[in-house]
Amino acid sequence: MRLILQTGPSGAHSCRLPVRHAATAAAVVAVLGAAPIGAEPVRVDPETGAATHATQAHGVSVSLTQLLPDQVRAFYVARGFDLADADVFADACVYMTVLRNDTAPGEIDFRLSDWEVRHNEEVRPLPPLDDWLAQWTARGVPDSARLAFRWAQFPSEQTYAPGEWNQGMLATGLPPGSRFDLIARWRIADQTYEGTLDDVRCTD
């Protein structure tokens, strides 16, 4: 994982530091003890091969554990999805995602709309929750099943005081077999922090 300290206004879009400030930023990062960390999985299920990628920096930890397509299908079929509808989500490279404010110096805020996936040299946003819900409505997924889907997802936005966290599903929207980097962003006061989980493989 790489952690990059960014600056910018409090608006929706923060900017990376200009190059001339890179050395300063690197120094700040070093002082805060957030040196880059390796990207190897911290855990691999010996039977399924599902890997967990995790890191901790600036007092915030992030982890991704792949939910295999059959696991995702089973979860949603049990909650009222037709198999064909569950297949759509199961094939979108779904991860059990945990973000936790362990010891950050204050509350952290994030919006998934600020997170990105880098795949095949392209950077793209994560599929928004509202798009999934609209798709389920169009496909006639029952209300109760859509409700289960909504609450099982990793929150679209959230604020965590130290000690607070969530665990939920996050779909990258990539096809099975993809390798990608996840770029997670959060804010503390008026500063944006960026953590990247590199070379995550979506097992098919």
């Binding site: 299920d45 792949q66 049990a78 000690g163 966290w165």
Partner: peptide, 23 residues
């Protein structure tokens, strides 16, 4: 599956995200 979705697979309790001890 429902019982293990949060942990995924065969990971033990020690691998689960720790519960917070503060409010």
């Amino acid at each position: 599956c429902i019982g293990t979705l949060g942990a995924v697979g065969t990971v033990g309790a020690a691998d689960l995200p720790p519960l917070s001890h503060r409010l």
